Amino acid sequence: MQRVNMIMAESPGLITICLLGYLLSAECTVFLDHENANKILNRPKRYNSGKLEEFVQGNLERECMEEKCSFEEAREVFENTERTTEFWKQYVDGDQCESNPCLNGGSCKDDINSYECWCPFGFEGKNCELDVTCNIKNGRCEQFCKNSADNKVVCSCTEGYRLAENQKSCEPAVPFPCGRVSVSQTSKLTRAETVFPDVDYVNSTEAETILDNITQSTQSFNDFTRVVGGEDAKPGQFPWQVVLNGKVDAFCGGSIVNEKWIVTAAHCVETGVKITVVAGEHNIEETEHTEQKRNVIRIIPHHNYNAAINKYNHDIALLELDEPLVLNSYVTPICIADKEYTNIFLKFGSGYVSGWGRVFHKGRSALVLQYLRVPLVDRATCLRSTKFTIYNNMFCAGFHEGGRDSCQGDSGGPHVTEVEGTSFLTGIISWGEECAMKGKYGIYTKVSRYVNWIKEKTKLT
């Protein structure tokens, strides 16, 4: 034993070699072989497995989906700052455009905790909710729209109204504003409101030439003092309507412009014939205590009207009353817009006519005020429907199939267009061939041609 100890002390290297040989010859039971080890760690190889990531292109799944990435790591994937920024906006807080917040056709661009709407022409605001041009839906104005110097929408209202708090709607500024039905039992019968379409306001006024200088022999019209197929109006439903009495009662109609003036057809009036105007009328054979009678003290036909040349060209006249009318729910003026808007309103496509005229061709006159909704007829169809001249200051309205029309005794009465609950004068009943005849239409004086003249002559002093 002493000898062994001496050998170990003198030859430590020998001992180490012996131990190493023993270990190498022993069977290893701690580690699995290569094949079995792979069965336990069965993990798919990654895209760049075996390579240094710093030297390969980034992978979106590896960089940002398996674990949260930084902007720089995302930049490695896209290799483009702009594309990385677009991805980053949604990656950080989701897609803010998912709810489609942009209105009126706006395009949404996502941002971090926010979004941006790219608005089409005519709109602005956070969600493109603000109209900035009158060309689109009248700028959301209830009545009139004008573009300011910086191309912003400025709404306005006709006389007797003021802008509401929203700067879009119009509200009454006087007790009985024009064009409004205020009798409670008839307010439910107000005709369907007309909503502004998209309009090209630059070209809204037709490029028409008034044929002022045409000389033409007097034409022989049949029954051209021209509501057939209409309905009984309720008291106060058309408070701007008046009836004219002269040699015979209810020979023509008219509309209240203001307390002192009536507008009617020029062919209705004769110099030297006494005319009485009755406002607030409903049943011409009954006294309903809503009527107001006034005498006409002055007749002003349009300066281009000449019955000797043509009885229905420039067929418009103004009547001055001896005493002002007292405005109330049964006696209310009709609204008159400017030339541009009167023309736009007419193009809405349908209007209402009213009167006490004959209820059928050569038949009896109506006792109760009649009204009828009539569609506008395109000019080409209008011209083809008659052998008589249709001037540019006239328009056609009615039904091709016949059966409904204005008729004798309705002449001078109103053709009105309702705009968001307020009625505007767009025409004056003038003439036609018979009444409600198939293929024939009622012919009306186009008020847009005469609004400046009306307003100039009827100013209240």
Rank of each mutant, 00 (worst) to 15 (best):
D212H: 10
R140L: 10
G106H: 01
T445M: 13
H34V: 11
F121N: 08
N80Y: 05
R404L: 15
F78Y: 14
H282E: 03
I297C: 05
F360A: 10
W88E: 15
F224P: 14
R298Q: 08
C170F: 01
K457W: 07
V227N: 08
E434S: 13
G442R: 09
V154M: 11
G105R: 04
W261Y: 08
H282R: 08
E281H: 13
L327A: 04
C134Q: 02
T290C: 05
N42W: 06
F395S: 02
R358P: 08
H302A: 03
T417M: 04
M437G: 13
V273M: 14
L60P: 15
K234M: 06
V368A: 12
I336L: 12
E124K: 04
G409N: 13
K234H: 13
Q96K: 07
E288K: 07
R449Q: 14
G179K: 01
G442M: 13
N135L: 07
V331T: 06
K339C: 06
K137N: 14
E79K: 09
V227E: 12
K455P: 01
G254L: 01
C128K: 02
N328Q: 02
I112G: 08
M65I: 14
P301K: 13
Y305C: 00
R226V: 08
A337E: 01
F251L: 09
E281N: 06
P414H: 12
F87K: 15
N42Q: 11
N59W: 04
D95K: 08
G229R: 13
L367I: 10
F55A: 15
V331S: 03
T287Q: 12
L20K: 02
D33V: 11
C170D: 00
I443D: 02
F55Q: 15
C128A: 01
I40E: 02
H267S: 11
E401Y: 13
V451E: 03
N127A: 04
H267A: 04
R294I: 02
A207L: 11
N306V: 07
E73T: 15
W356N: 03
N306P: 02
Y201C: 07
E418V: 09
Q370F: 02
G280C: 02
Y371I: 12
E259P: 09
I334D: 00
R404I: 14
E66S: 08
F388G: 07
L189C: 06
E53H: 10
N245M: 06
M65A: 12
Y330T: 03
D410V: 14
E286K: 09
D378P: 14
L372H: 15
Y341T: 08
E159F: 06
R162I: 10
G179P: 01
G432Q: 08
I17D: 02
I334L: 06
T85V: 07
K146C: 05
T225G: 13
V269L: 11
D95W: 05
W118C: 14
N135Q: 12
N42G: 06
F348D: 08
T186R: 11
T81Q: 13
N313V: 10
R358K: 13
K109D: 04
P333A: 06
I284M: 07
D93E: 05
S406Q: 14
A436H: 13
I429M: 14
S365K: 14
Y371P: 05
G398Q: 05
F251A: 08
P235W: 07
D111M: 09
L23S: 03
I429C: 07
K457N: 14
W261R: 00
F176V: 08
K168C: 04
T445H: 05
E433H: 13
T85D: 10
L369K: 15
R226L: 06
E54P: 15
Y47T: 15
G105K: 03
Y312N: 08
I284G: 08
H415F: 13
D198K: 09
S411H: 13
G58R: 06
L163P: 04
C102A: 00
R294F: 00
Y161F: 09
A436T: 14
R384S: 09
E456V: 09
V154D: 07
G21N: 08
G236W: 05
G229E: 13
V195Q: 14
A436P: 08
I210W: 10
L346A: 03
E79T: 15
L372Y: 12
M65W: 07
A307V: 08
E418R: 11
G229P: 13
T290F: 07
F121W: 09
R364F: 07
F395D: 01
T264P: 01
A233K: 05
K387N: 13
K234D: 10
V181R: 12
L23Q: 03
H314T: 02
I284Y: 08
D150N: 09
D111I: 07
E10I: 13
E66W: 03
N304L: 14
I309L: 08
D131E: 15
R404S: 14
N59I: 04
R3N: 09
K39H: 12
V451F: 04
K137Q: 12
E159C: 03
Q185P: 08
D223Q: 10
S182L: 05
T426M: 01
W261C: 02
W261S: 01
L319E: 01
L211S: 11
D111P: 02
L346P: 02
R379V: 11
T186C: 04
L60Y: 10
F176I: 09
F221R: 12
H302R: 02
P101T: 03
A37Y: 03
D223M: 11
C108W: 00
N5V: 12
G280A: 03
V181W: 08
N283P: 04
N310Y: 05
P101F: 02
L460D: 14
L103R: 08
K247P: 11
V199L: 07
G403D: 15
Q90P: 11
N313F: 08
M65Q: 15
Y91M: 15
E76W: 09
Y352F: 14
Q57I: 06
T381G: 04
Y330G: 04
G409H: 14
P120V: 08
G355M: 05
Y444K: 00
C252M: 01
K440V: 05
T84S: 08
I443L: 12
I214C: 10
I297T: 08
E116A: 10
Q143A: 00
G403C: 07
F348R: 09
G272N: 12
E53A: 07
V263M: 03
I297P: 02
V263F: 01
N283V: 09
R83A: 15
Y115I: 01
G122V: 02
P177D: 00
P239S: 02
N393M: 03
T194D: 12
S148G: 08
L460G: 07
I275T: 05
I443A: 05
S365R: 14
G402I: 13
A397C: 03
C141T: 00
E193Q: 05
L346D: 02
N213G: 13
A317S: 04
V353C: 03
M394F: 08
T85A: 07
C396T: 01
G427T: 01
S406V: 05
E433L: 06
V359P: 05
K260W: 06
H282G: 08
P301R: 11
I344M: 12
K168W: 09
P172N: 05
E61S: 15
A307L: 07
I316Q: 00
E320T: 01
P197F: 11
D93F: 04
L20C: 05
F87L: 07
P239G: 02
S25W: 13
V202F: 12
L321W: 01
Y201N: 13
K446I: 00
N166H: 02
K45S: 06
H302K: 01
G50H: 15
V248W: 08
K168Y: 11
E340G: 08
S354H: 05
G402R: 12
R191M: 12
E288C: 04
A337G: 06
K260Y: 07
N222R: 13
A173T: 11
Q143R: 00
I210R: 10
N100P: 02
N151T: 10
T190M: 04
K274E: 12
M437R: 13
V4M: 13
G432T: 14
R298W: 02
T461S: 14
S187Y: 10
V4W: 08
T85S: 07
V368T: 14
S385Q: 12
T16D: 03
S70E: 12
E433V: 07
E10A: 14
T342A: 06
A265L: 02
T29I: 12
T81A: 08
I256S: 01
H34M: 10
G412N: 04
Y330H: 10
D322V: 03
D93S: 06
N213C: 04
V227A: 12
W453D: 00
V243Q: 07
V416A: 10
S99D: 06
Q57E: 06
I256W: 02
E288Y: 05
S156M: 09
A207F: 08
C108A: 00
R83S: 15
H34Q: 09
N222G: 13
V374Y: 02
L189P: 09
K89S: 12
P301C: 08
V153P: 11
R298N: 12
I284W: 10
D93H: 06
K247Q: 11
